[in-house]
């Protein structure tokens, strides 16, 4: 039964059907995964497969120096040419992909994992725990990420594991903030209060009641972070501060080619193109999945 009530919404009724239509139209667009999803996904599949099976592809060894064939452009023997030491570019790019992809997947997971723990603690216990974690995060944010990495790489050296870990640390603040906000939001909801009233332990409440509700924004966040991690690793290896030479990495290969940009631009430009396409693909695929996740979640509620 509808009373004749002051129709406060009347003013916006002209816009309401509009929003509705837009929402539905874009909903339909989102649900169709078009070429903008499948082509990047195919590229990523190729890159991942090449990186995983690099040893079985019959490539030149990535660090085999050949003074007879330096700075060669693409040719029959070396499909993508050779660098200033005569090393095979294709091989260096494929082995470089191993580093980029490992860091790309591991660092966000590490960072989001740690950020999740800190954020939950801050959001659930509040008070001084929140304050201390807040200060720690502000501190972390006040130092430029690259400076942290710079110091870490010198202190802890350039093993792949260390690069993943120190890069992962950079993702903590945002992940912690997202988690904290979501936890604050959920820990006062009825179902949490009810669980607490029934004597559930904090750990149980956090893992059973709170965690499932905050996991989606974090998964979306990991998807955003993968290309970012690859880019930062690239910057780090460009500065020579990532994995140690002669292990090839994309940033490193690009940096080496910088000296020969004039005569042999392919040494820098080919890995630049490969890295660009890979990062772009991760962005496009991640964006599509993120929208899907949001749809699924909205549909579920």
């Amino acid at each position: 039964m509808a009373d004749i009530t002051p129709d406060r919404l009347e003013g916006s009724s002209a816009g309401a059907p509009d929003d509705n239509a837009d929402a539905i139209a874009s909903h339909n667009r989102k649900n169709r995964l078009g070429l903008g999803f499948w082509i990047p996904l195919a590229w990523l599949a190729v890159v991942v497969a090449a990186a995983v099976f690099a040893d079985f592809l019959g490539l030149f060894p990535a660090d085999e120096i050949d003074w007879m064939h330096i700075n060669e452009g693409p040719n029959d023997a070396h499909i993508l040419g050779t660098d200033h030491l005569g090393r095979d570019m294709l091989s260096r790019i494929i082995y470089g992909a191993r580093v980029s992809l490992t860091v790309g997947f591991a660092a966000p997971l590490i960072g989001v994992g740690l950020g999740l723990v800190l954020g939950i603690l801050a959001g659930y216990y509040k008070g001084w725990v929140d304050e201390v974690i807040g200060i720690a995060i502000d501190t972390w944010l006040a130092i430029p990420g690259l400076v942290i990495l710079l110091l870490f790489s010198v202190v802890f050296g350039g093993s792949l594991g260390m690069v993943c870990l120190s890069l992962g640390l950079l993702f903590i603040p945002t992940a912690a903030r997202i988690t904290r906000a979501a936890t604050l939001n959920h820990s006062n909801r009825e179902f949490v209060l009810a669980a607490r009233a029934m004597g559930a332990s904090d750990f149980r409440i956090l893992t059973v009641e709170v965690l499932p509700n905050i996991i989606w924004p974090l998964i979306a966040f990991v998807l955003i972070d993968i290309p970012i991690a690859i880019v930062i690793e690239g910057a780090l290896s460009f500065l020579g501060l990532s994995v140690k030479a002669p292990t090839p990495s994309w940033g490193g290969v690009i940096a080496e080619g910088r000296e020969h940009l004039e005569g042999s631009p392919h040494i820098s430009l080919i890995p630049t193109a490969v890295m660009f396409m890979t990062v772009l693909s991760f962005n496009l695929v991640g964006d599509a999945i993120r929208k899907r996740l949001a749809d699924v979640r909205d549909g579920a509620i």
């Binding site: 910088r258 631009p265 430009l269 660009f276 772009l280």
Partner: peptide, 22 residues
């Protein structure tokens, strides 16, 4: 924007140098 955000500054720098300087 998507293309641009996938292009870290050191890569842009290389391209800019290659094109505008060399």
């Amino acid at each position: 924007a998507f293309a641009s955000v996938s292009m870290p500054s050191f890569m842009t720098a290389i391209l800019l140098i290659f094109f505008f300087s060399l």
